[in-house]
């Protein structure tokens, strides 16, 4: 369970690194499918509760596939859409970071920003 200081710090890290870089939505969640922090830039809303449940299932399934082919993990996933794309990255064994972004921002930049975010998150978790 996170205390209020950690939750505030999580929000700040996500905002500073991701939302301010142009990423539309960010969800920081546990592997059980619960969102711990959700941030967005105010654009289109979507059902983040169902999204988090599906994202956890998706990540868990890919993780299990990794084990079957002898990988210890696939620590990141990327789904590309026509207008928006989704980037999933493991933060630690229990936590997942999901970033949704549109065509105006490159995958390279997202990966860079996500990597920095994860490093900062792990310092406070």
């Amino acid at each position: 369970m996170f205390n209020i200081k950690q939750l505030n710090a999580i929000d700040n890290i996500l905002k500073k690194n991701l939302i301010s870089s142009g990423i539309d939505h960010v969800i920081f969640m546990d592997m059980g499918g619960n969102a711990i922090a959700k941030l967005d830039n105010g654009t289109a809303k979507f059902d983040s509760t169902a999204f988090a449940a599906l994202a956890a299932g998706n990540f868990a399934a890919v993780d299990a596939m990794a084990k079957l082919v002898g990988e210890s993990e696939f620590s990141l996933l990327f789904h590309k859409g026509e207008k928006s794309s989704i980037h999933f990255n493991k933060v630690n064994d229990d936590m997942l970071l999901i970033s949704m972004f549109n065509k105006d921002i490159s995958l390279g930049l997202v990966r860079l920003k996500v990597a920095a975010t994860i490093k900062e998150l792990n310092e406070i978790l």
């Binding site: 369970m1 996170f2 205390n3 209020i4 939750l7 505030n8 546990d30 059980g32 499918g33 619960n34 711990i36």
Partner: peptide
């Protein structure tokens, strides 16, 4: 385990 968020004052329970 249930998720308790002291900031948003939410509890999420999985059944």
């Amino acid at each position: 385990m249930a998720l308790i968020n002291v900031k948003t004052k939410e509890i999420q329970i999985k059944i």
